[in-house]
């Protein structure tokens, strides 16, 4: 069985895995990182989104062996010194979640979105999050939250945004 080395939320793991094991199952079933849920198995809903070497990836559509040598950040690894990432704060402040099942993936995708477009329009947020589905909120508050976080992160650049512009460094720290 292949042996892989992968860093998840700053902790390095060496694991023997079946080649077919999905990254999300490595995270959830082997490493106990259950903060990242599975919503659809087909890469449509985005609930399982993590960052892989700083870029968002749907972990149900990545094999664990493909993550060999990579840095993975999940929603569990965003807080710094007990303080939430601005995106987490913004989702809370704008009531951008209800059941919360899509939230980990939505937050990770939104952080990646701001990396490409630090000040997105409403339209850009909607297009940028097209691959992350939410059944509860109707998205109005999610859009507000992402724009709120963008404003906050531009005010305090990078201070608390490990998953965004400095994904690798933060994950390795």
């Amino acid at each position: 069985m292949p042996r892989i080395t992968v860093s998840v939320d700053g902790v390095t793991y060496e694991e023997e895995v079946e080649p077919r094991l999905l990254l999300v199952h490595l995270l959830r079933d082997r490493l106990g990182k259950t903060g990242t849920p599975v919503g659809c198995d087909t890469g449509n809903c985005g609930a399982c989104t993590v960052t892989l070497d700083g870029r968002s990836a749907k972990s149900c559509s990545v094999l664990a062996v493909q993550a060999d040598g990579s840095e993975v950040v999940t929603v569990e690894g965003l807080a710094r010194d007990g303080r939430w990432h601005p995106m987490q704060e913004a989702f809370h402040a704008e009531h951008a979640l209800q059941c919360g099942y899509c939230t980990p993936g939505m937050i990770m995708a939104a952080i990646d979105l701001l990396r490409d477009d630090p000040d997105p329009s409403e339209e850009a947020v909607r297009r940028g999050l097209e691959g992350n589905l939410c059944r509860c909120t109707g998205y109005t508050n999610i859009v507000r939250a992402v724009r709120r976080a963008a404003a906050e992160m531009s005010r305090v650049p990078h201070e608390r945004a490990p998953g965004a512009a400095e994904g690798r460094e933060a994950a390795a720290s």
């Binding site: 959830r28 079933d29 106990g32 990182k33 259950t34 903060g35 990242t36 849920p37 599975v38 999940t74 929603v75 569990e76 965003l78 807080a79 939430w84 987490q88 989702f91 809370h92 402040a93 009531h95 979640l97 919360g100 099942y101 939230t103 980990p104 937050i107």
Partner: peptide
């Protein structure tokens, strides 16, 4: 009021049934 539920949901400290081992 901002929701009390959010803290565990935005940080991934949830207990979905599939999380149970």
């Amino acid at each position: 009021r901002r929701r009390k539920e959010d803290a565990r949901l935005v940080t991934g400290r949830t207990m979905w049934t599939d999380n149970i081992q």
